[in-house]
Amino acid sequence: MSFGPHLLLATLEGLVTAAVLALTALGLSLVFGVMRVVNVAHGEFFMLGAVLAWAVTTALGGHPAIGFLLALVVSPLIVGGIALVAERLVLRRLNYNPEATIVATIGMLYILQQAALTFYGPEARPVEPPFNYRILLPWFGYSGYKLSIVGASILLMIAAWFVLTKTRIGLVMRATQYDRETAQAFGIPVDRVYAGVFALGAMLAAVAAVLVVPIQQAHYLMGLDPLLLSFIVVIIGGLGSLRGTVVAAVLIGLSDGIISVFFSPTLAKMIATLLVALVLVFRPQGLFGTVAR
């Protein structure tokens, strides 16, 4: 394959990565933006979403599309429920102290990882894609399912944008993010908003995981990479900014795809992580964010 088609393939792969990443990072960004909590267990909610998708499709059998659609509904709901319980039992009692919540979410990370290892096992298991359709390009065939991930992600991001900017729920969330105490004074149930946002953040990660699991097998350690990449996206995009998250996800996804195709993946990760750490040091508000009040 010559350079042009090779680049096209890398770009397509990068777009798929970006689509999944945007959803996962949006969850992390919402939780940080509204609650000021760095959720280190976010990657494990992603992993749980994928593992549950495998469990649902395997238990159901039949046509892969039915199992997949059911998983798309059931898996985020269960993950959201687990996140809700964790938030009520642990984070709320810590009064959302930044350092204590980081330590506590590290604890959750280990517990969820161990639970997956104990009940699901160390194997990586595949999930059947809901449909098999290859789009034939002049140079190579490309999986139609992968492109549908990009489509689904775009739809979900538009929905998220709509909810955040045009509905009452979004207004309440933005008010809480902007000034917790004033929001409380105006009768916004901040406590319930926090619980809802934490669950929603976890559900977004789970949806992303269900979408990606047909092309990337479910494994109990799969949460670490999405966690680090989401951190990177959220930092580059500026915390709590939807537009920044999308732009940064596309940027990181594409460069990750392209660098990994042409260079060593370890080198790509090394350079990306170093650059992002330096962004955080020298431009803490992110490349697209504005200075916080």
Binding site: V38, E99, I102, L228, S264, M270, T273, L274, L280, V281
Partner: peptide
């Protein structure tokens, strides 16, 4: 140069770079 949460994330990322260096 960073404080609070940013300090934790930055140190974690530098450590991750160091880890990747030992692998590379």
């Amino acid at each position: 140069r960073t404080t609070g949460v940013a300090f934790m994330i930055v140190t974690m990322m530098f450590a991750q770079v160091f880890y990747l260096v030992t692998l590379y």
